[in-house]
């Protein structure tokens, strides 16, 4: 007569109760995230096609004009009397550096609208195509040029220049990008990206052109040599060693505190439990 039905033993609390509870909790977390996540507008896409300013113009018309206007004057294109959906800024005078940075880092063309254009690893254009578009934009009005090899050569930077670069970084950059270039939050979901993956050329171009929220640091406000020094400090890990061990993200005391609780208190409580257990 006696059968073992383990599942039924929990009959006082309905087994579904746990499932329902978890579902409710997930819903709550999801809802909160949805409510708190920065709102993204509609996505826009573009496709690539085919040399020098003329080719660049063609590329521009095909890929960029929907938002930046047929003559790169900004404000998008009016189709059938409707105003443009995604009005972009004017590109007249932004220079070749801006094009190379935006397209070369995958930020443009914009894949998905959000608080700001993220860096994308998959670049849709060859460097040649990017240079062609850059040439077209540069032909419209004078603007910052793509930095030269010499400007990006960090091997010439001596220790004193390096220290000066680091000091300029702390005053001009660290407030957004953090002391170690790990990035940080701005208002309303915008952010200063981490500089870990950024190439020397893109860092230089970003300073020069001030993409998105970032202000402009032209060669008269931060000299070309100082920019090279900043890049030397940022891109050469061996120039800024961290002999203390693993850095926990280099975001300051927040991760350290969390680690002290989880690993420190966690391990010590584990040892306490072992100490308090009866030996077998």
């Amino acid at each position: 007569m006696t059968r073992t039905l383990t599942a039924l033993s929990a009959r006082r609390r309905h087994p579904l109760a746990v499932v329902v509870l978890i579902a409710l909790a997930l819903l709550l977390v999801g809802g909160l995230y949805a409510a708190l996540a920065p709102r993204a507008a509609e996505a826009s896409t573009a496709t690539a096609s085919a040399d020098d300013v003329e080719t660049g113009k063609k590329l521009f018309l095909a890929n960029c004009a929907t938002c930046h206007g047929l003559n790169a004057q900004g404000g998008g294109v009016t189709v059938n009397g409707d105003t443009a959906q995604n009005p972009g800024p004017s590109l007249i005078g932004v220079g070749a550096a801006a094009v190379d940075f935006q397209v070369g880092s995958g930020r443009m063309p914009l894949a998905q609208s959000g608080p700001q254009a993220p860096k994308v690893n998959k670049i849709r254009f060859s460097q040649e195509q990017i240079d062609q578009m850059a040439a077209y934009i540069a032909s419209l009005a004078p603007g910052p040029a793509i930095p030269t090899e010499e400007q990006l050569d960090v091997s010439t930077v001596n220790d004193e220049q390096l220290a000066r670069g680091a000091a300029i970084f702390r005053t001009n950059c660290a407030m957004c990008h953090n002391f170690a270039g790990k990035g940080g939050a701005l208002t309303e979901g915008k952010y200063a990206p981490s500089l870990d993956e950024a190439s020397a050329k893109h860092i230089y171009e970003a300073m020069l052109t001030g993409p998105q929220s970032m202000p402009v640091f032209n060669d008269t406000t931060i000299s070309s040599e100082d920019k090279t020094a900043i890049i030397a400090w940022l891109t050469q890990d061996e120039k800024r060693p961290d002999p203390g061990g693993l850095t926990l993200g280099s975001v300051g005391p927040v991760s350290e505190g969390l680690f002290a609780w989880i690993a420190g208190i966690g391990l010590l409580i584990g040892c306490s439990v072992w100490l308090g257990m009866k030996s077998s």
Partner: peptide, 16 residues
């Protein structure tokens, strides 16, 4: 870096 009242880092937090 050394203290200077002008610079600041993103994520300026005290210990936990």
């Amino acid at each position: 870096g050394a203290y200077d009242p002008s610079p600041v880092t993103a994520g300026s937090q005290p210990d936990w």
